[in-house]
Design a binder for these strands. Structure first.
Lengths: 368, 368
DNA sequence: ATTTTTTGCGTGCCCGCACACGCAATTATT
DNA sequence: AATAATTGCGTGTGCGGGCACGCAAAAAAT
């Protein structure tokens, strides 16, 4: 035992000599001829360091290419970081369960790093509730706020407050560029429209039928994104000589009756509809209609892996889902705060998550 | 300063009392009325614990729902783990650069965790080179071996050696079930065939043309996987009354002349080919042909994001790539060893990576 | 010139866990 | 019965970094 241990230690010493991979603060200190405390002060800009010492340390830092050991750092940091999350209530719309679950998972994964998350939910149809929750939130001093800024005006007021208090913000789902935020996490709406078009391209030319572009609004402020999707979709066929016919339908009310009436009248007028592109996560509403009236053969493509969509995907009523990774958006939002607050890593200002193509054959790989 | 620190400590004490989230070995020891050493021995099955103490500790463990702090565990373990990687030479086939790069990235990411990787490459067309490298590898005592077992017989002999030496194995790309390995990481070939069919379904019915299923063999032993892909593809149309015509072509030699001749003669016989499904990563070879003879309108679908495929995807000659995540396979292989060796987490015996659908519109999200 | 303040720098403890080691108590061997 | 071997259990150290604290020397104030 004793001998083993001694051998092991010798081995370690030799090993560390051979493998220069691990550079510690201690090594920097030795190299610079100062103590670890001084190096620490330089690293954290804590002051109280003579210019000469600082230069020597910085030189050593560069020469040995010091990279802090995140593991050790995370361990020592017994500090707790409180993050507030401000998102639409998942109970009003299945779409919002996705980022919500992603955030919950991240909370779980990072709680050993000292991350504590408080969730504030608002009604996605009611700007006042957003402001209410935002005000409530600001009563506590958070180290960071992750939010989906659905309401432009209300967000601007809130963001101003956060900037004044120097609270870092991370936005997801919707980007509003007026203030400099730590990061935006989302998807490229235009590209997602093009992607949808790509998936429908061959069928549409072959059947030479029309395609309905369907905006089933989720919240009043998402219109801009939906337009981008529509533009991306149409642009795809730009240079096409025999481009398909487009029919754009917008249904803003969440009342199902209206939707059915709209669809009924559309199908009465047009008898050659071969595909429907739903620009929101509400493809399941159309799927229900198509199934009911026996039009399941019509190609249907929509967004997001909400449960209802996945069910219709399995049945074959929905043909493709483009996954905007709302779950990942929530998760990544928290993870970026971990990077920023704990690991002190740089976070990229924009993070576009992949546009996954989901079908009956591969959907289960993307479920959580 | 002094006061601040005191307040902080009191705060921490109160906090830990309120938040029971952090259960340490010390807490278990107190609860069970033993020392941390005893708890440690129970946790690691190091023996030298009385049955009574063991029971008490286990009870405390369960009651307090102890979860080890992986951060601390990883920090303390200054032990180095050496992992050998045995993979085909990326120089012979671009496909193998993907897992190779994934492994290299993982090596980089985990080197602060004490992971050291030695890479051994063999010629994917030559079983003897596999055995040679395997023997060479076994001269060093590795803590784990990650390999792509392309050659069945040769693998069996090697695996037996590893089992005798109690070296854990992780397989990827190709699964061989004879020995109990730590984990297999790969993709579901059958499903990937079905997925390809789904992407071609509407176009094929519409154009009522034939589809070529093209096996462009990469290595002699991958035939079984290619058959699964073909079966998945055909099964998709099983219950279809007007299923498309299938033409299966196999080209085993890597000589391009043969390939061109085969394609020429096929297109001479059949004039109604509307799609080609390449079951390997060699779709770019077909793309080059189609482009040269002016048949770019034919739908082309293949596997894997090797550079050549991505180029033809951008040009629009290849319509879809199904990504088997070879990069992720390599990365995940190393990551599973980190889980197993360092974090002592349980690793799942089978890990199926998603089958991503890649198009011109979303490919850049999937590049590394 | 003496006291106070500021600056520069080093030491020491803690985070949670792994592991070696050492001491006492028990059991086995002669 | 005396010695040796084994078992049970506690203590101590270190991993790399963060941070408080304290001591000396230099600068500023009296």
């Amino acid at each position: 035992m004793k001998i083993n241990s001694v051998i092991f230690r010798i081995y370690k010493i030799i090993y560390q000599d051979l493998e220069k991979t691990l550079v510690r603060i201690k090594d920097i200190a030795t190299k610079a001829g100062v103590s670890v405390g001084t190096v620490d002060r330089v690293l954290h800009n804590r002051g109280r360091v003579s210019p000469e010492a600082k230069t020597k340390v910085k030189a050593a830092l560069k020469e040995l290419n010091y990279r802090p050991n995140f593991i050790a750092r995370a361990l020592g940091a017994s500090k707790k970081y409180c993050i507030a999350v401000l998102v639409p209530d998942p109970n009003n719309d299945p779409y919002w369960t996705e980022p919500y679950n992603g955030i919950t998972q991240a909370e779980h994964d990072f709680n050993s790093h000292g991350i504590i998350i408080d969730k504030y939910t608002f009604n996605q149809f009611d700007p006042v509730s957003f402001t209410q929750q935002a005000k409530l939130l600001l009563k506590k001093a958070y180290d960071g706020i992750l939010l989906a800024p659905l309401f432009y005006q209300q967000y601007l007021l809130f963001a101003q407050d956060c900037v004044d208090r120097k609270i870092p913000l991370i936005l997801f789902n919707t980007n509003i560029d007026n203030f400099s935020v730590l990061s935006y996490i989302g998807q490229d709406s235009y590209q997602s429209g093009r992607l949808a078009a790509h998936l429908l391209y061959y069928p549409l030319r072959a059947f030479s039928g029309k395609v309905i572009i369907m905006h089933l609004a989720e919240d009043p402020e998402s219109a801009a994104q939906l337009m981008k999707k529509e533009k991306g979709f149409k642009d795809y066929f730009e240079n096409d000589t025999d481009k398909p016919g487009f029919i754009t339908l917008s249904v803003n009310t969440p009342v199902q009756k209206t939707l059915i009436a709209q669809l009924d009248s559309t199908f009465n007028v047009y008898h050659d509809i071969s595909a429907i592109f739903v620009t929101t996560s509400k493809a399941y509403e159309i799927a229900a209609y198509l199934e009911a009236v026996g039009l399941s053969h019509i190609l249907l493509i929509g967004f997001d892996m909400v449960e209802e969509n996945v069910n219709y995907l399995e049945k074959g009523v929905i043909d493709f889902i483009i996954n905007q990774n709302a779950y990942q958006q929530g998760y990544a939002g928290v993870a970026r705060f971990v990077d920023h607050l704990i690991l002190k890593k740089e976070v990229q200002p924009k993070m576009y998550l992949p546009l996954d193509v989901i079908t009956k054959e591969n959907f289960h790989y993307y479920l959580h």
